[in-house]
Simulated assay, not measured.
Amino acid sequence: MSTKPVLIKTSHLLPGGLHTYIVPEAFYLSVLSQAGNPPELLIAMQEEGYELETPSAISPIVTLCHVADFDRHDTHHMALTLQGIECVKVESITLGDNDVKLGTYSPLPQWRQQNTPQEYEYLSNKLAQYYRSNPALHHHFNLAQYDELGWVCLRWLELLPIEVKQKQLLLSQPSPNQVAEFIDKLLRYPLENDE
């Protein structure tokens, strides 16, 4: 097992994704000093609008990330760009130097790469359309893999406002096929309000 600093965020980052987080400079320096070489961090999911009761109550499937870039955001903050590498399981949380949360984690089985089947090409096309209409949200077109089913499903899981426990259940599936089926139904047949 390995140990890395944990960031608990409502902006979810999954393998193959890229996201920039604004963090206090002092926190950034503390995290980086405990992130190893090359620096790697864990991003844990937090429900939008809810504070965790205790840091040890995070959802266990988190994303191991490497630092893709960093820049000064303002006088006291840094813009930290992370790229997701793989999903791992956090076994325990402790406090490191300067109260940085450290997660001890173990590997999880990773999805086997597979081409997007014709029945789910709709998901790829819809995702590409969404990013084209929101270019500020997708700075890494060179990393796009619209023909790879797992990558497409992970991007949808980052974007969709699904409860964290539902995302965790989907990430624990043995392949992206079940996830694609869920997302496909959600997008094609959204829940309707009976009122």
Rank of each mutant, 00 (worst) to 15 (best):
I61A: 06
N98V: 00
K185N: 14
G96P: 01
E40V: 00
L102R: 01
E121M: 11
W156K: 03
G84R: 06
V90T: 04
R72W: 10
S172K: 13
I61M: 09
I43W: 05
E192I: 06
Y50S: 14
L64A: 05
E91C: 11
Y105V: 02
S2P: 00
A136L: 15
L29R: 15
L108C: 07
H19D: 11
I43T: 07
I183N: 01
E148T: 15
P24R: 12
N98M: 08
L186M: 13
K101F: 14
R112L: 13
A144M: 11
T75M: 10
L18W: 08
P107L: 01
D99G: 05
I93P: 02
A26T: 10
V164E: 06
P15R: 07
M45Y: 06
L29S: 12
L169Q: 15
T63P: 02
Y146Q: 08
V88T: 03
T75N: 14
T75W: 02
T81I: 04
T116F: 00
L149G: 01
L80F: 05
A44T: 08
L29K: 15
D99W: 09
S133Y: 13
L82R: 02
I22V: 15
D184P: 01
G150W: 05
Y120H: 08
L82P: 01
E48S: 13
Q168M: 07
N115W: 06
T63I: 08
H77F: 11
S106N: 11
M1V: 13
S2M: 13
I22Y: 11
Y122T: 10
P5L: 02
V6N: 01
E51W: 09
K165A: 12
H138K: 12
L127N: 01
L32S: 06
T63E: 08
R72T: 12
I85D: 02
S106A: 15
P55V: 09
L149S: 04
Y28L: 03
Q113R: 15
M45S: 13
H139Y: 07
W156L: 05
R155F: 11
P5M: 03
E40I: 00
L169D: 11
T75E: 12
E48T: 14
L191P: 00
E86K: 12
I85P: 05
L18G: 08
Q118F: 08
Q166L: 14
A79L: 03
L157Y: 04
L95G: 10
S92C: 09
G16Y: 03
L13A: 08
L127W: 03
L159K: 09
Y130P: 00
E163N: 14
D69T: 00
R72V: 10
